[in-house]
Design a binder for these strands. Sequence first.
DNA 1: GCGACAG
DNA 2: ATCTTGTCGC
Length: 253
Amino acid sequence: MAAAAGSPTLPAAAAYRAYHPDAIMAYYRPYHPPADPELVRQLTATQNEMRQRVRLEPLAHPPKLIAGLDSSFPTPETILSVIVVLKFPELELVEKVYHYGTVNMPYVPGFLSFREAPNLLLAFEKLTQKPDVLMVDGHGIAHPRRMGIAAHIGVLLDKPSFGVAKQVLTGQHPEPSTEAGTTAPLTDKKTGELLGEVLRTKDRVKPVFVSPGHRIDQDTATALAWHCTRGYKLPEPTRLADHWAEEFKKEVR
DNA sequence: GCGACAG
DNA sequence: ATCTTGTCGC
């Protein structure tokens, strides 16, 4: 067996899970290479600065256009960012753009935005129709320093934004009921602060995590996410961004 | 000190 | 995120 410091192989992990869940899965826990302490210090300072600019408030006007933002990595050194714009509340696709660039930053938990945001902003510049609100894949303020990628993008563009994530980064929560449309609070264990809401978008399917990013509040973010779901786990904006990423991937290689 | 760790 | 096979359920 390889050293525990190595990167895990998922299929094998799945097989071992049934055999010996705890000990074996601990061995297969996703491994993140150590990040340069000085880099982390600088990025942390930047996030703390940006955090001061975040405003949580209701939308000034109901949105007419909502965007879905998503990034993927066709190769380890390239990034493909996709933005789709949908009419709201009809959810009719009105525009889709992408930008294909190079990766300049490693993935470090808590600093995802510095890896994906630059390329997303380049994609945003290509949009003809500017959306009223952005649904970003990842967290908003449900982040160790309250500056997840949705908040990061929102501040940089000074545009209402919120995050829809598939996995928790920080915070604790009870399980929402198994029925679609139900929610549960995601809170900070120490302070009790509300970080986001766990939203069951589909019956008996693992919920998503909705949190405000910038110039929006929790209730509006959750309501928008729910009004954008059409029988799938992911709300339409991010689901379609995901879908088109697969299509665009064929074009760039 | 030990775990947890978006995409 | 990305690489993978088969499998369970509506």
